[in-house]
């Protein structure tokens, strides 16, 4: 199994914020979700992959080649969907398409027309007048029409209604029916896209917390709910993050087997959701600072 994106020891700092020593491989043929709270560095990471932001140190490789961007061939295989509008707002949908199409040798006008109809994009409408959801649909139509091998989407669902979010899942799973196509998306809302994700990369505060197969997370993490009397100096150390209330505590452990050994009989042990993993990890790391 090969990687379509490789980051090696990438650093980038902006004043107070820094991405630190990011090494990461995105698997070809699968869907990878990049999750993390706002400001964790997800967008910077994606923009670095897209060649918009230059790393201070380290290497970004796309499809096995160095992205020194003498290789437009690499970009041609990427479809980029951003949560902010990157198109010329004063142009109409049709004009914008006319601008974009000639840059891609694999552009397929029929496919574009198909998606334009499916998404109900009116060609005469100005980009400026499109709703956020429509803008996302437009960039998706563009990406799918030049048959990108790799879809890179930055917070694609943030402006979408639940109905289209579901439709998007269909479009994306359809896209990877071809085992050579891959998807990387970022989101801070872990309840929609992650159901189809094969791999999850979790970033927090400029660092990678984990990069795992989603299936493996359930075997690694454990959510423990119990009375506060269970918490003492030693047991606290076992947790990645704890939330205490008047009536007990909830805590996340990173070693499921160990956790079950300690708490199986005295507390409730559950498989955490991604959101819970995210919440407790962020909470825990804030405490340690």
């Amino acid at each position: 199994m090969s990687d379509c994106i490789r980051l090696e020891h990438v650093h980038k700092s902006y004043g107070t914020f820094a991405l630190q020593d990011i090494s990461l491989g995105i698997k070809e043929g699968y869907i990878t979700g990049l999750i993390g709270p706002n400001g964790a560095g997800k967008t910077t990471l994606i923009q670095m992959i897209m060649g918009m932001v230059r790393p201070d140190r380290g290497d970004v490789q796309l499809f096995g080649g160095q992205n020194k961007e003498q290789v437009p061939a690499v970009k041609e295989r990427i479809g980029y969907v951003s949560d902010e509008n990157i198109y010329y707002e004063q142009l109409t949908v049709k004009q914008m398409k006319k601008v974009i199409a000639p840059f891609y040798s694999r552009w397929n006008e029929d496919t574009y027309v198909k998606y334009q109809e499916l998404f109900r994009l009116s060609p005469g409408k100005k980009i400026r007048d499109l709703s956020k959801g429509m803008k996302i649909k437009f960039s998706l139509a563009i990406a799918l029409s030049h048959s990108a091998d790799l879809l890179i989407m930055d917070e694609p669902t943030s402006g979408l209604d639940p109905v289209f979010r579901r439709e998007l899942l269909d479009l994306l799973t359809e896209h990877i029916q071809d085992e050579k196509k891959s998807i990387l998306f970022s989101t801070h809302n872990t309840t929609d896209l992650d159901r189809i994700a094969d791999y999850i990369v979790f970033v927090n505060d400029g660092r990678i917390v984990f990069d795992e197969m989603k299936e493996a997370l359930a075997e690694k993490y454990l959510l423990v709910k119990g009375g506060k009397e269970l918490l003492d100096r030693d047991t606290r150390r076992l947790f990645l993050g704890i939330r205490e209330s008047a009536h007990g505590f909830e805590g996340l452990m990173g070693n499921r087997a160990e956790g079950e050994r300690y708490f199986k009989d005295t507390a409730i042990c559950e498989t955490p959701t991604l959101e819970e993993i995210m919440y407790f990890s962020v909470k825990g790391s804030e405490l340690r600072v």
Partner: peptide, 17 residues
């Protein structure tokens, strides 16, 4: 595997497993 994953809207690896 990919077809079923699409139908069920779940991940490919889950289906593979």
């Amino acid at each position: 595997i990919r077809q079923l994953a699409k139908e069920l809207q779940i991940s490919v690896i889950t289906t593979k497993r």
